[in-house]
Structure formats: C-alpha cells, structure tokens
Amino acid sequence: MLDLFLQQTVNGLALGSTYALVALGLTLIFGVLLIPNFAHGEFYMVGAFLTYALVMAGLNFWLAMALGALAVIALGCLIDLVAFRPLRGAPPLSLMISALAASIILQQTATLIWTSEARTIPTPVTGVLRTPFFIVTWMQVVVMASLILSVAAIWAILNRTRLGLAIRATAQNHDAALLMGISMVQVRLATFAIGAALGAIAGALLGATFPIYPTMGVNPVLKAFVVLVLGGIGSLRGAVLGGLFLGLVEVMVAGYLSTELQDIGAFTLLVLVLLIRPQGFFGTAQVER
C-alpha cells in the first residue's frame, strides 16, 4: 500500500514537472508583458516537430533540441511582432483573440507540413530506474532535471544580469521602467525569446515521451493556465510548485478515486483556489494603480 502511494507520488511529480515546464514560459510572458499567450502551446508543438524532423534527419537529440529551440525563438519574436506589438495598449481581450488567432494559424500550418498523424520522437534516454520503493523512467528523470535547470537558468538571467533587471522592472511597473530608459523593444524580444525557448524545450522533451501532433499544445496550455492560477500569475516559484501540485492531485484522484475524475479533479481545484485565494498560492494581490 505504501509502495503504491510512493509510486503514485513519483508519478504525480513526474506529470507535474511536465506541467511546470510548459507553465514557466507562459508565466514569464504573462508576468512581464501581460499577454495571455495562447500560442505558447504552438511554441511547444513546433519545438517538438522541429526536434522530431531533425532527429529523423540523423541529428543527435540534444543538438536537434537546441536547433529547434533557436528556430522557435525566432518564431516567438515574429509572433510578437505580428500578433502582439501592434496591439500595445489594447484591452486584454484583443490580446487574447490575437493570441488565439496566432495559435490556430500555427496549428493549421503544422498540419499542412506534417499532417495530423501522431508520432513520437525517439527517446534519447531509454530505460527505467527501479528502486525498492518506486519505478521511474530515465526520461522522466531527464524532464525533472530539465525543469530544475530551466528554473535555475531563468533565475540567473533575471537576477544576475542587467537584462534580467530590466525584465523584472518591466514586470513590476511598466511606466516606471520606461522612465528608467529601459527599451521595451529589447525587453519584449528577450522575454519572448526566453518564453519561446522554454516552450520549445518542453515540446522536445515531452515529444520524446508523448505523441506529437499539430494540436498537441492545446491541452498543455490550458493546464498551464490552471497552473498559473494555482501558483499565482507571473511567479516562477508559483509555476513550479503549482505544476507539481496539479500533477500530484491529478494522479492521486485518478489513482485512488477514478480515472474518469482526473480532469474534473483539476478543474474543481481551480475553482476552489479562485474562490479562496484568487491571487494564487504565491501571487501577490494586484493593487489597482
């Protein structure tokens, strides 16, 4: 019984780290630029497909992932330029519609290029780690390690570089950041680049575990928005802990109640958090300015 519980906990953490990995990029772009970037799921999808294509062309997985991420960075900056920058100062609803449009266009383009058939990237790391208490695949270990590395990298960029200082300033007070002479073009580019790279890396890693297809990004982004609400919008710590928490809840509900309730459990949790603590676990209440 205890074995089973430990195994389910590990399952939950593994699932949760995939949610967190997707949520990181989303929370960054939302936190800094206040853009509900639904197209993040497509950064994730394109990252997965490019990695797949490059691996199929004979490249090493990690090299393919890096090249895929670079291409998605360019895509991210392009999306910002075309879909969001012209809407500066527009109400959030316009941004949301623009994001959805970008997301649909990318999905359809991917369908034209790769068709809608599901496929999986050959796993770079195979095998299973068996301990007396639980079993975990090495690929899951890689995903969890990547989450830790990603968080460390973002933390370092945000807290140890001048650019990071500018990004944090923009997130906290947009106008004041302008008054400091911070260039919004630079901050936007950097934020979209980091966000897109995170999406692409998540896509490549998870595409080696799950099937990839043009609409693969829709569900993870919805889950990532749940994670943001749980953890607090714009909070990196919230994204990580919110993701892990969501994964655990889903697995425990599926494991001990019923698989049919798995999604219902997640969204019930969402409603509860919204009722009890609307700013999320780690978010600070928004002050009207």
């Binding site: 200082l165 500018a166 944090r168 007070n173 950041a177 008054l179 400091m180 600070t284």
Partner: peptide
C-alpha cells in the same frame, strides 16, 4: 528624469536594485 506621481518604485526589488535601475542607461 521624472519622479512620478505616487512614487512608482519597483516594489519587489531591493532599494539597491531600484537605484541600479535609475542608472540603467549608464550601465552599472
């Protein structure tokens, strides 16, 4: 330079980081 209405400091940053941002265009 403007000291804006309502002060508009960066609330989650240290005093030192706020000052660093003041000198943002001049480097560190």
């Amino acid at each position: 330079a403007l000291v804006p209405e309502g002060r508009q400091v960066f609330p989650d940053m240290t005093v030192r980081d706020n000052l660093r941002l003041g000198a943002y265009l001049r480097g560190e």
